[in-house]
Amino acid sequence: MNDSMTAVYVTRFGGTDALEVRQVPVPDPGPGMVRIRVAAAGVNYADIMQRVGLYPDGPKPPFPAGFEVSGVIDAVGPEVSGWQPGMPVMAFCAGGYAQYTVTPARMCLPVPPGLPVEQAAAIPCQYFTAWHALFTLGRLSPGQRVLIHAAAGGLGSFLVQLARQAGAYAVGVCGSAEKCALAEELGCGATINYSQTPDFENLARKLTGGAGFDLVIESVGGERVEKSLRCL
Results as ranks from 00 to 15, higher is better:
residue 23 Q to F: 00
residue 57 D to R: 14
residue 50 Q to R: 14
residue 3 D to S: 15
residue 145 R to S: 12
residue 224 R to A: 01
residue 206 K to S: 14
residue 59 P to M: 09
residue 177 A to S: 15
residue 59 P to R: 11
residue 34 V to I: 15
residue 154 G to W: 08
residue 18 A to P: 08
residue 55 Y to R: 07
residue 168 A to E: 06
residue 213 F to G: 03
residue 194 Y to G: 02
residue 100 Y to K: 04
residue 161 Q to T: 04
residue 121 A to N: 08
residue 148 I to C: 01
residue 45 Y to L: 14
residue 110 P to N: 08
residue 160 V to F: 02
residue 131 W to A: 14
residue 183 A to G: 04
residue 185 E to T: 12
residue 171 V to N: 03
residue 172 G to M: 04
residue 169 Y to R: 13
residue 8 V to G: 04
residue 105 A to E: 03
residue 142 P to R: 03
residue 2 N to E: 15
residue 139 R to D: 13
residue 55 Y to S: 05
residue 3 D to T: 15
residue 162 L to R: 02
residue 72 V to P: 02
residue 201 E to Y: 03
residue 16 T to Y: 03
residue 98 A to D: 09
residue 205 R to F: 01
residue 50 Q to P: 01
residue 172 G to H: 03
residue 11 T to E: 15
residue 138 G to I: 11
residue 39 A to M: 03
residue 73 I to V: 15
residue 95 G to H: 07
residue 230 R to S: 13
residue 75 A to D: 14
residue 133 A to F: 14
residue 62 P to L: 10
residue 107 M to D: 11
residue 126 Q to T: 14
residue 225 V to Q: 00
residue 165 Q to I: 02
residue 164 R to A: 07
residue 202 N to A: 15
residue 18 A to Y: 06
residue 161 Q to L: 06
residue 168 A to M: 08
residue 81 S to M: 01
residue 91 A to Q: 07
residue 130 A to T: 11
residue 20 E to Y: 01
residue 107 M to V: 00
residue 78 P to W: 00
residue 180 C to G: 06
residue 28 D to G: 13
residue 173 V to S: 09
residue 186 L to C: 05
residue 55 Y to I: 07
residue 133 A to W: 04
residue 88 P to M: 09
residue 32 G to P: 11
residue 190 A to F: 01
residue 78 P to F: 00
residue 150 A to Y: 00
residue 133 A to I: 07
residue 26 V to S: 08
residue 218 E to N: 04
residue 164 R to W: 02
residue 152 A to H: 06
residue 139 R to L: 08
residue 24 V to C: 10
residue 188 C to M: 08
residue 33 M to R: 14
residue 177 A to K: 14
residue 198 P to N: 07
residue 194 Y to T: 00
residue 84 Q to D: 12
residue 174 C to I: 04
residue 26 V to P: 09
residue 125 C to P: 00
residue 42 G to W: 08
residue 142 P to E: 07
residue 105 A to S: 13
residue 81 S to K: 08
residue 205 R to S: 06
residue 181 A to C: 02
residue 62 P to S: 10
residue 166 A to Y: 04
residue 98 A to S: 14
residue 2 N to D: 15
residue 218 E to I: 09
residue 6 T to K: 15
residue 112 P to A: 12
residue 127 Y to T: 04
residue 193 N to P: 05
residue 70 S to F: 06
residue 91 A to C: 07
residue 144 Q to P: 05
residue 149 H to A: 02
residue 80 V to C: 10
residue 214 D to Q: 13
residue 117 V to E: 15
residue 160 V to D: 01
residue 152 A to N: 04
residue 129 T to F: 09
residue 187 G to N: 03
residue 15 G to L: 02
residue 188 C to R: 04
residue 1 M to W: 06
residue 79 E to G: 00
residue 132 H to L: 11
residue 66 G to V: 09
residue 69 V to C: 06
residue 196 Q to D: 13
residue 191 T to N: 01
residue 29 P to R: 12
residue 190 A to N: 11
residue 169 Y to S: 11
residue 196 Q to W: 00
residue 38 V to S: 05
residue 40 A to H: 11
residue 40 A to K: 11
residue 200 F to D: 07
residue 157 S to C: 03
residue 103 T to I: 06
residue 3 D to M: 13
residue 17 D to C: 04
residue 205 R to E: 05
residue 63 F to E: 08
residue 4 S to D: 12
residue 84 Q to C: 01
residue 167 G to Y: 03
residue 37 R to D: 10
residue 225 V to I: 15
residue 87 M to D: 14
residue 144 Q to N: 02
